Amino acid sequence: MFKYLPPLNEHNLPYPDTIHPIVVHFAIAMVLFAVFCDLLGYFTKNSKLYEVSWWNLTFATVSIFIAIIFGQIEAGLAEPYAASVSTLNAHTILGWSLSGILAVVTAWRYVIRLQERPQLPLPYLAASVLLVGLVCIQTYLGSLLVWVYGLHTIPVVEAIRGGIL
Score class of each variant (00 low, 15 high):
V146K: 10
V85G: 14
T92R: 14
S84W: 12
W108Y: 08
Q115P: 00
S97V: 05
L32Q: 04
S97M: 03
A127E: 04
S128R: 02
I112A: 15
A126L: 09
N89M: 07
Q72R: 15
W96E: 12
W55Q: 06
S143K: 13
Q115T: 03
V135C: 07
Y15F: 13
Y81W: 03
P21S: 03
G133F: 03
L57A: 05
I28P: 09
D17A: 15
H20G: 08
S84I: 11
V111Y: 12
S47W: 01
L49T: 13
I64N: 13
I64L: 08
W54S: 02
Y42K: 07
I64Q: 01
C136T: 07
P80M: 03
A83H: 05
L77S: 03
G76V: 10
E74I: 06
I64D: 04
L145W: 12
L102F: 04
F70C: 09
S99E: 15
N56T: 01
D38L: 05
D38N: 07
T61R: 08
V111T: 13
T106M: 04
E74H: 00
V105Q: 12
P21Q: 01
E79H: 08
S97Q: 04
H25V: 02
Y15Q: 11
A107Q: 11
P14G: 14
I68R: 04
V104F: 13
D17Y: 12
L49C: 01
G41F: 01
F65P: 02
N56D: 00
L39Q: 00
F43D: 10
T61V: 11
S97D: 05
T58L: 14
L130A: 03
V23H: 00
G71M: 13
L57P: 06
V135P: 10
I66V: 06
I112K: 14
G41P: 08
G41H: 04
V24M: 07
T58Q: 02
I64H: 02
D38V: 02
G133R: 10
S97E: 06
G41M: 09
A29S: 01
I73Y: 04
L131Y: 13
F33D: 03
E79G: 00
A82G: 06
S47K: 12
A126T: 10
E79Q: 13
P121T: 11
E51H: 13
I66S: 02
I64E: 05
G133L: 07
Y42H: 11
I112E: 14
A34R: 04
I66F: 09
L134H: 01
Y15K: 10
V135F: 08
